[in-house]
Design a protein around this nucleic acid. Structure first.
Length: 721
DNA sequence: TTGTATCAGGGGTAT
DNA sequence: ACCCCTGATACAAGT
């Protein structure tokens, strides 16, 4: 990571005049770099500057909208299933089945499991199925689901599902037996996690990983696996939201999906190894232990110490290969390059057992051997993060060596092993960057190179820093900050849409809510505001809905959620990155600016190129993993084109990359007056702090001026538009 | 929930 | 008698 922090950091403080416009330089293009403007001082506003313009995130919405061609609300219905389970942009994914049709034909589960070889979980299911009378759900039933209460709830869900699935097949479960042996006539919903997963996986042509990649990963395969994992996990969460604790749906989707992928061999670096893991880079972040497992960074699913047997001179011994320091024990993590790691065992973390001295066995023994042997050990540091449900993010902090070990009395008074880990030199900063950012936020240390602490002057709910620690350029060229999209005229709506009536916010599973119905029956976002899957169109609640701004179906209207900074890149002008980690699917920002007519572009043509165009009508490369039948055509209700040349938000600084980490999602907000189509940016994968945010600018229909691409990706096309 | 250690038993081979 | 492999089982474990 680029960690050049200059010396001339003078924090700009105090309230900024909102009418001020600073003369800064736009460099969204990669090449060529603009020459410096003469009066490029960020702190002095030129006289007669345009007034600062800002719209509140929730409206009022413009009453005038441009007359694009009428949009029929049935885009999804007439075209591909909207709920395609793919991140691939605009891929129709015919093989990806809409969520409402994820239904298992009777006995297909056995088939599926048979394909993938025996495994503990699948064996259990097959067995329970072969018992006959209960059908395949029983493998997942637990006692709590057998009461009459649940029965009635299920029936409700089924009725709802029926409405929603438009004739999708469903099995009838003739009988369900209660614990007391009483038989109840009940129709169970047949949500089968395995078939959901299989449907999605087959749409990717990815039922299994080839052996080579399973043994040794690379960047692509690691990315692939993590993408699939989180996509499936979000999908399961989405279903679980609607059908609480029902059989067949995991209460811990992460474990459930992890198990399935492990059994299917959709994992990599399966063989344990000492040292670096191919495809995983220092600084990579993870949100679940399962992810560490799937990419081969740390094999134990729970335990903190990973070790392997090593035979040297006919003598076999266990050596440690990886440790996770996540706060379960009393580790010392104060120093960024040193880690005092506690040994395992001794019932330190068990409430039901008496604390004892730790023994020199298992992981402790392996660490001891690694100390003697001097082998490198991978260190994954757990970082507190309140924005995640688990409250933890795992940061891969690279290789360490164990310098010494000792025992000491822990808080409980029993002996605890301690191991002193020293970070191997010459690795990119990872955990250190996190500590640094925390210090910037706490005001303990100053971010070097800050030109403006908040270039939005309060237009956003979170400040956006303007930073240059590369050279002495004082900022991008003048523009007016606007937090949202500005329509010149309303887009006429043929359909009268009064909005929903969910006064406390739209609730998953509410089959009456028209907004949820428009999204094929499911809220498009998970409970923490993460987009479940890329869709041809997301229908958000609009101005005429009764739900509050905090409604789960208004994610893109809620403004920024992470602390962004506009920074000067080494060779691509200005760029955008985040101080906060961003998880896959999370909303980042929308593309603000002025909506313009398509004819405007043609006028521009030739010389007067607008470098701040967002053109939704371009052809976009599908986001990886590439589904087999992607055609790259987005499904939007009208040809949206936005210019952020004079007026825009942080999104105008996002550079192009041929291997992007951000994608855009069309979002429709509807009212009785008309339509507002917005462009929302979401993370493709987990993005560590300070990594540049990029998206694919797409390919225009007509030849426009090409620019040389400097994204540096192995898949770089060499140019972009 | 999984990974790991441990043990019992079967089958093969060497002494 | 011994080794190696396999399956069963118990149990620990920084979810």
């Amino acid at each position: 990571m680029d960690q050049t922090f200059g010396q001339d950091s003078v924090p700009v403080s105090g309230p900024l005049d909102k009418s001020r416009v600073w003369d800064v330089k736009p460099l969204r293009r990669l090449v060529p770099v603009f020459p410096s403007a003469p009066n490029s001082s960020s702190s002095s506003a030129p006289p007669g500057a345009a007034p600062f313009f800002c719209t509140a995130p929730f409206g009022p919405f413009p009453s005038e909208v441009s007359p694009f061609y009428p949009f029929s609300a049935s885009v999804g219905a007439q075209g591909q299933p909207q709920q395609n389970a793919s991140f691939g942009y605009g891929n129709p994914v015919t093989a990806a089945v809409p969520i409402t049709s994820f239904r298992t034909p009777p006995h297909s589960t056995a088939q599926v499991n048979g394909d993938t070889g025996p495994s503990r979980s699948s064996r259990g299911r097959v067995q329970s199925q072969s018992q006959g009378s209960f059908g395949d759900e029983d493998g997942y039933c637990d006692s709590q689901n057998q009461g009459a209460q649940f029965v009635s709830r299920y029936s409700m869900h089924i009725a709802d599902a029926e409405v929603n699935s438009k004739g999708g097949r469903r099995k009838n479960k003739p009988q369900k037996r209660t614990r007391s042996g009483r038989d109840i006539n009940v129709t169970l919903p047949d949500i089968d996690v395995d078939s959901i997963v299989n449907n999605i996986l087959s749409s990717y042509n990815l039922m299994e990983f080839d052996t080579v990649r399973r043994t040794d990963g690379d960047r692509d395969s690691v990315g692939y696996i993590l993408l699939i994992f989180d996509l499936l996990r979000r999908k399961l969460s989405q279903i679980e939201d609607v059908r609480e604790a029902m059989p067949g749906v995991a209460r811990r989707p992460d474990l459930r999906v992890g198990t399935i992928l492990m059994n299917k061999g959709i994992r990599t670096n399966v063989k344990k190894r000492i040292g670096a893991v191919p495809g995983v880079e220092v600084g990579d972040i993870f949100f679940f232990r399962m992810e560490l497992c799937l990419v081969g960074l740390h094999h134990p699913i729970m335990a903190g110490i990973g070790y392997m047997g090593l035979t040297v001179n006919l003598e076999e011994e266990s050596v440690a290969v990886s440790v996770v320091s996540s706060g379960g024990y009393e580790d010392n993590v104060e120093d960024g390059d040193v880690l005092i790691y506690s040994g395992q065992g001794g019932n330190i973390n068990r409430k039901d057992k008496e604390v004892t001295d730790q023994k020199l066995e298992r992981g402790n023994l392996a660490l001891e051997k690694s100390l003697r042997r001097g082998n490198e050990v991978r260190v994954i540091r757990g970082v507190k993060d309140l924005s995640t449900p688990t409250g933890k993010i795992y940061v891969y902090d690279g290789l360490y060596k164990i310098q010494e070990s000792w025992t000491e009395k822990g808080k409980s008074g029993c002996n605890v092993f301690k191991y002193k880990f020293i970070r191997v030199h010459g690795q990119p900063e990872a955990f250190m960057t996190w500590k640094l950012i925390q210090q910037w936020k706490d005001g303990i240390s100053l971010r070097v190179g800050v030109i403006l602490p908040d270039l939005t002057s309060g237009a956003e709910n979170i400040p956006v820093s303007l930073v240059n620690d590369v050279d002495d350029e004082k900022g991008p060229a003048h523009f007016t900050y606007l937090a949202s999209l500005k329509y010149a005229q309303p887009v006429d709506s043929l359909e009268i849409f009064g909005g929903c009536d969910c006064r406390n916010g739209c609730v998953p599973g509410d089959q009456i809510c028209p907004c949820i119905q428009k999204n094929a029956g499911y809220l498009p976002y998970t409970s923490n505001g993460v987009l479940v899957t890329q869709k041809s169109l997301v229908h958000e609640c609009g101005p005429s809905c009764q739900c509050p701004p905090t409604c789960r179906n208004r994610v893109s209207q809620g403004g920024l959620r992470v602390h962004l900074e506009v920074f000067k890149t080494k060779d691509k002008g200005w760029g955008l990155r985040s101080w906060d980690p961003i998880r896959a699917g999370a909303f980042i920002c929308e593309y603000a600016g002025q909506v313009i007519d398509i004819s405007k572009i043609e006028e521009l043509g030739g010389e007067n190129v607008d470098d701040y165009l967002f053109d939704a009508t371009r052809t976009y490369q599908p986001v990886e993993p590439v589904p087999s039948d992607a055609n790259g055509v987005p499904k939007i209700p009208f040809p949206l084109i936005i210019t952020a040349k004079d007026v825009g938000n942080v999104a105008r600084f996002m550079n192009h990359s041929c291997s992007p980490n951000v994608f855009w999602q069309p979002v429709l907000r509807q009212s009785d007056k008309g339509y507002d189509l917005h462009v929302a940016f979401h993370a493709i994968k987990h993005i560590p702090p300070m990594r540049e945010l990029t998206y694919d600018y797409g390919l225009p229909d007509k030849a426009e001026r090409k620019k040389n691409c400097l994204c540096g990706s192995s898949k770089c096309r060499g140019y972009f538009y």
